[in-house]
Amino acid sequence: MAGDKVVHVSDSDFAAQVMESDLPVLLDFWAPWCGPCKAIGPVIDELADEFDGKAKITKMNVDDNPATPGKFGVRAIPTLILFKGGEVVEQVTGAVGKAQLVAMITKAL
């Protein structure tokens, strides 16, 4: 099913899931009250299917997890950060198109 490959990350497992991941990780900061976050939801689901085994596609609910967005200076959602080897590679804000995200991830593979 679309979307079941997306990993939901929290403040407590952020280090293990994202910083220590062997694969590049895309992290989507979102919240249930954010319309544009919902709008890119299906795109995130598709990315998780398409990059299965090559990159990890993750989401974090900023309502439940205030520490991580604060650490990365996230003051707007959706914000998407691409991590590789525990470092921030690229950061984009807003409901960006799928093509831009595919290009961003592909570059980091």
Partner: peptide, 10 residues
């Protein structure tokens, strides 16, 4: 995304 926003609701 670091303080400049176009969506108050978000």
């Amino acid at each position: 995304g670091k303080g400049v926003s176009y969506c108050a609701t978000c």
